[in-house]
Nucleic acid binder design. Sequence first.
DNA 1: ACAAGGTGGATGCATTAGGTCTATATTTTA
DNA 2: TAAAATATAGACCTAATGCATCCACCTTGT
Lengths: 164, 164
Amino acid sequence: MQASAVNSVRTTADRSSLMNIGRKVDYAVRALSYLAAQPHLWVVGSKEIARRQDIPTHYMSKIMKDLAAAGLVRSRVGRKGGFSLARHPESISVKEVYEAVERPLSLMECLEKDHHCCPYDAVCTQISVWERAQGLLAEYLAGISIGSLADREGLKGRLNGLHS
Amino acid sequence: MQASAVNSVRTTADRSSLMNIGRKVDYAVRALSYLAAQPHLWVVGSKEIARRQDIPTHYMSKIMKDLAAAGLVRSRVGRKGGFSLARHPESISVKEVYEAVERPLSLMECLEKDHHCCPYDAVCTQISVWERAQGLLAEYLAGISIGSLADREGLKGRLNGLHS
DNA sequence: ACAAGGTGGATGCATTAGGTCTATATTTTA
DNA sequence: TAAAATATAGACCTAATGCATCCACCTTGT
């Protein structure tokens, strides 16, 4: 009788989380992509987003909270409530989304400002390598907008479209 | 009288492993950097590497095993045994090192060949983004050689050098 | 008033990161 | 040949993390 039946189809076969973008970011991008394709300021309920993009319902609530806290979406509480983008879709980058739900992009602790991760940072030969790698990544992701990923139908809809 | 006293000075304050290069890779690069600065085919015992680069001794043994299995170092068993680079330092890339001790560089499961991580890959809007990001990263890391990171003295030695 | 929504937080579980230890096989050298 | 120093193989341990689920509460439209 309720929408809880389907859920994520993924197997538990997660291999490593090192150097991996997590599901949280995946889900966040999916959700925002869906919102990005709606009419301006259109409010969409979380159930709808979750269903169309196949995101675990309750988990997404937490994610949307993060996105709201970061100022990427606006939420409306109460009946007929839901979410809408708080900014122009073209102005929201994937890097921002990542940092909204995860943390500032950082390939190693050493690279975090004022973190002084290990006593050797003054003489470390690798720091500059990871720093540059991280810079490349950040620059690229900052250049990709949610607008460019807009998805009016949602994954489910488009997948079924292929089948028909 | 023994080398076991110091160990890693890092606090336990690891934050997240998502999108993080792990310590294993850090240690592997340190070890290879040290070997890269030795005379050609010079054999160095693991105790010495561990001491000079401040790597947990037993943990490093496991790492060296991976590096040997990947053909990056040659090992010599028995007394006076140890490790030496199996290839020219300039020909060993950081990407290879990463993949020797960790796994093939992959930002998301979806990107792994033939993994078919989720039912939506055919209609996914984000895959190409992560694919390109991963490509940039891989390309950059493939261009950095262990030779360019060679460290004759090791972190400890060079740090003390600064103090004097 | 009440139902449909978001908010905030407690809780849970499987896996991984990171590391230690021991037993064994191999080689040098005394 | 015995002993010492080394790598190898793998079992084992622990805290933290990833990925959720659930619930009690507060807001708002009808």
